[in-house]
Design a binder for these strands. Sequence first.
RNA 1: GGCGCCGUAGCCAAGUGGUAAGGCAGAGGACUGCAAAUCCUUUAUGCGGCGGUUCGAAUCCGCCCGGCGCCUCCA
Length: 489
Amino acid sequence: MPTFRLYDTQSRSVKPVETQEPGHLKFYCCGPTVYSYAHIGNFRTFIASDLVVRTATALGWRVTYVSNITDVGHMTQDDVADAGGEDKMEKALKSKEGDAFANIWDLARHYADAFEDDWNRLNLQQPTVRPRATEHMREQIVAIQGLIEEGHAYETPTGVYFRVSSFDEYGKLSGNRDQDSLMRAVRAVVQDDNKEHPADFALWKKDDKHLMQWFSPWGWGFPGWHIECSAMSRTYLGDTLDLHAGGEDLVFPHHECEIAQSECLTHSPFCGHWMHVRFLQVDGEKMAKSAGNFYTVRDLLEKGHDPMALRLSLMSTPYGKPANFTMQSLKDAMSTIERFREVEKRVRAAGISESADGEPDTETQRVYDEMLEAMCDDLNTSVAIAKAIEGARLFLRDSDLTTSQAQSAQWFLRKTDALLGVVGGTATESLVEEPVVEGRPISALIQERAEAKASRDFAQADAIRQMVDSAGIELRDGPNGTEWRRKVT
RNA sequence: GGCGCCGUAGCCAAGUGGUAAGGCAGAGGACUGCAAAUCCUUUAUGCGGCGGUUCGAAUCCGCCCGGCGCCUCCA
């Protein structure tokens, strides 16, 4: 088995993923704040995490995978807001889209459910636990109390703050170590005169007007953003994690603050390996919710794009490099997905059932081994996908597969899907409604065209194909009749 | 100011010292009533520029040019 190696932000080098318990990976990935629909950039991060889980599993490891949902405490910056900005959830409720919701809990539930739908459509593995900040209030309050008791936090008239100066190693992850740059990083608008130092960050906000509030030793209020991850990761993974992932923007302050809180509280190393996913750009431009130039998963799927093609296009550039999403890249990915499906069809045509196991021949085994090796090499998805295509081509060379070839192909598809997650998900096709062209269902038109072809009336057959083509439907004649598919634009 | 990333064919992109993977698009061919799909063949004397190290550099070093990200709104 190859060694699983990933880039580690803190040591700035690629190093082996080490587990405390042999063969058991404790993995935490920072999830979304559910104030809106997640966009494809969010999912680039979650797909990278998914690939960590799949690769570890392929190596035979057990993975305890925790990915949270932030539904309170994540502040937005706003020029008119007072210290600390505004809670993103509250802001969303006040927006135009927020009118659709009865209250903030309803809004949180809606976007969290939508997030999980998108997650499933993209064939992401279920986390072992998907904790929510609002459901772990006790753990957060206890953690804050612990930090106060140890002198790492203090109460002010507006909240409880972490005392950055009490943790010598603050800045070890991001490199933001010197006080001058920390000072400069603090915007004037978030100053709270009661803080001892501008870099101190909120653990608890006192606010009896907040739409989500809890009673604490410091009165009514709500937790700061960073404490939830420290509290929840400790609850489910213990004091020390093996691997922690998130988007590159989280390096500072979020993960830096998590380290400070957790290590001060537990007196143990928080995490030995940090993985950060580079931002996704769209058509060469930065994508951000605030910029409004983002695609959501549901936008693209509603337009008829295939979820597996979207997944593949989002993972085709390795996570550590900036990726550029374009409609062309989505189309390119679709061609690859169709090749996998073509292999699947040929396997079925050879009489191998979906539930059959299959055995690889040596060539197939070799290609798979190389694919796994690429994934172990810091998730080199570019090479792994090339290997997946190489494997598919082994079975597309001959039009009919022998039984042993088909068994080999079956094995390869299974293994490739388990590792890359891009073969499955074909079931979604059948959910698409049958299109109607000129008032007639497509199946009737296909039938009519088949009859025209049978009587060698090719002009009529071509006229029908032309008609549905202009309606955006493509017809493909195959050995088992004619299939239709929506053309992707 | 601090921290970090990238520049490889028309496009996406692998390769980090031994003589340029893979995909898309393009070209030719097989197959097909015609298409589509699939298969086969083909497409970079060169890896932003200039120097240097080396028997040998896309790969290491230096400088320059260009693009990008984070630094209390973002995954």
